[in-house]
Simulated assay, not measured.
Amino acid sequence: MPQDNRQPLAISCDCRKIEKLKNEWKYSGINVEQSKYTFSSFEVWNEASSRIKDTAAAYCTEFDEIKDKRRNSLLLCGQVGSGKTHCSIAVALNFLKQRIKVVYMPYRDVITKIKQNMIDQEYYACTISKYKTCEVLLIDDLFKGKINESDINIMFEIINYRYLNMLPVIVSCEFTIDRLLSFDEGVGSRVYEMSKDYIVEIEKDIQNNYRLR
């Protein structure tokens, strides 16, 4: 009987898939610890947390239909500890699995670094461009900490570019919509209009803080 010398088909092992996924997280700025923030690991413990999860999940489901429209973004705002960052990152992870490129912008860390290097025009232009032009931008904790004119100017440059070019943003913020508008109406109103169909504003109430349960 003739011997079959054919080689078996190569099968991509789980290790390679995991490594590829980690590289995608690295590109996006999401670290391995944050990669645990999935929809399945999110615990719904009250009505507010249910609204956050349901809205974020609906945004994922409907993204293909809305991504090129004016209202193509997501805003989760309000009470600290209510699960906004968790669900924002869950959306990003979902997109990455679909080969939708997401860039994660931890607001305070990025703004501080940009301001420290503003004299370096090449660094500034390159960094700002990354956040202006990426396919989807996730801004975590928008306007966290002390805010000055430089913070607002940087965010306006990023948000206005994305607004004009209808590029989606995912925003988590511990402030109400009214408070967000009071920081800068130009930034706040653009975020609001882009996210109008997918907004969850969580009431300021320690009962909505998962960490204090």
Rank of each mutant, 00 (worst) to 15 (best):
L137K: 02
S172H: 04
F156T: 13
L76A: 01
I147D: 00
V80L: 09
L74A: 01
K67S: 13
S41R: 15
F156C: 03
I89D: 02
I119L: 10
K144G: 05
I128D: 01
I154Y: 01
K113W: 05
D109P: 10
I177A: 04
G29N: 11
P8F: 05
D178V: 05
A92Y: 03
R16N: 09
T61E: 12
D4R: 00
S189T: 08
F183N: 07
E149P: 14
D140P: 04
V91P: 04
V191C: 06
E201W: 05
I52T: 04
L167P: 08
S172T: 09
R108S: 12
V169Q: 01
E157C: 05
R71Q: 14
S28M: 05
R190G: 08
L180C: 15
D141A: 04
T61Y: 09
E62Q: 09
K22Y: 08
F183L: 08
E203C: 09
S82R: 04
Y192L: 14
E122D: 13
K36E: 13
S129T: 10
K115T: 08
I199K: 06
D120Y: 04
D14N: 08
C13Q: 11
P106F: 01
L167D: 08
E24V: 14
S129L: 01
F183R: 07
G188E: 05
Q116R: 15
K69A: 00
N208D: 11
I139H: 01
V169A: 00
L93V: 14
N117Y: 07
V80S: 13
D109E: 15
S82K: 05
